[in-house]
Design a protein around this nucleic acid. Structure first.
Lengths: 212, 212
DNA sequence: TTGAATTTTGAACGGTGTTCATTATTTTGA
DNA sequence: TCAAAATAATGAACACCGTTCAAAATTCAA
């Protein structure tokens, strides 16, 4: 058996990726396996390993795409012009709702993105970090109007803090390790965090007064 | 083969649990398997299933114990008497440090506790929720001095919000999906969240003035 | 046309969770 | 005392998993 000319390497790589995604979307993370992907594209299991070093490498590529889609999704959020403090809160709520909608429509891919732990403990590739960074820049934009003369690193520090906090609430709720204790949706808890966090930022040295 | 009289069912159940923990502690979550546990206690794999319905049930029991230990560990934190606002912040920092120390000394068990997703999507048993609740009550105690006449449900709502947020920061950092973007330890990010969150609570309707 | 390069295979290895008929032992009852 | 019932433990079997790699099939270059 050899070059079947059916597909170029790049095509094949894309087919594998698409099939992997279809499996995850259709049946959850546990449905993803090399053998199932191979069967889906009509190749032998070994072929997968000619194009991806291992399953984790395939998942990493898939997660990169999910990250990109999430960014595109959030970027579409129309943020209001900020004339007063409350507008920042409303903008962040819009982003939150966008995020929750994305999760609703892509639950399995989202779980794969954040819960999967690669067996190999190496650092993530640079392109991956860049996509995470793009995501965080969306929050940067929403927070920036609150400050004047703030260092971009300091702004990012705040965005990361808020982002990771919201992520914690949503992912604990998703794992049902939160819902039972408090009879509230993750939206409400996130909303409370946003409001409290923003209010707390009033103590920040670069915080700008209310108007314009 | 039959009743070897070596161990009573309860003893055997405890041996299985202890062996499972040893495996996780020694080699991480991926080292835990029915066959390895069986080998460790000198029984056949099938025996495990006479005492635990499946591996997830075993993990749930183990996680319950970890939860209990975490609670015991945090309970030992000596909280300062609160005479002013800053004392609450210091107390929460103490709890944070206690939590981070616990993770440092029990990383694999902690990962099993929060990252493991049981295959069966049923709700967690009541005793499990109770232990989570006990954990949250520790945070309740630290936050309570800030308020007067606050409903216990409302206080718990705030504790959950803070707890889940801190968890998000720490778990993202643990998965290395945070460290690369921001060059800071999870301690520092958590610390920032605590300070900002507490500052934000000043807007709460039950917030009590600074003194006493 | 022939030899080198490339692509694909699929069996094999060592694992996994789980089941359950069978067997060995102990306990019970007459 | 002895057979029958209850119990405890087994381990082979089933259906999976990720991964490897010698071998085979095909294409390309000379």
């Amino acid at each position: 058996m050899a070059r079947r000319v059916d597909h170029s390497p790049d095509e094949l790589k894309a087919m594998i990726l698409d099939s992997a995604e279809e499996l995850v979307v259709a049946g959850g993370v546990s449905e993803l396996s090399a053998r199932k992907v191979a069967q889906k594209i009509g190749y032998a299991p070994g072929t997968i390993y000619n194009l991806y070093a291992n399953i984790d490498a395939l998942i990493l590529t898939l997660n990169g795409r999910t990250l990109e889609r999430l960014h595109d999704h959030l970027s579409k959020t129309r943020l209001d012009d900020v004339r007063e403090f409350g507008a920042v809160n409303r903008n962040l709520e819009k982003l939150l709702i966008g995020y929750l909608n994305f999760i609703d429509g892509n639950r399995s891919l989202w779980r794969l993105l954040f819960d999967h732990m690669p067996a190999n403990e190496e650092d993530l590739p640079e392109w991956y970090d860049q996509r995470v960074s793009m995501l965080l820049s969306v929050i940067d934009q929403a927070l920036r109007p609150l400050f004047s003369g703030i260092d971009s690193k300091e702004l990012r520090r705040l965005s990361v803090t808020l982002w990771a906090s919201l992520h914690g609430i949503i992912s604990l709720a998703d794992k049902k390790k939160l819902n039972v204790v408090i009879n509230q949706s993750s939206y409400e808890v996130c909303s409370l965090l946003i409001t409290t966090f923003l209010n707390g930022l009033k103590g920040h040295k670069n915080f700008r007064g209310t108007a314009k």
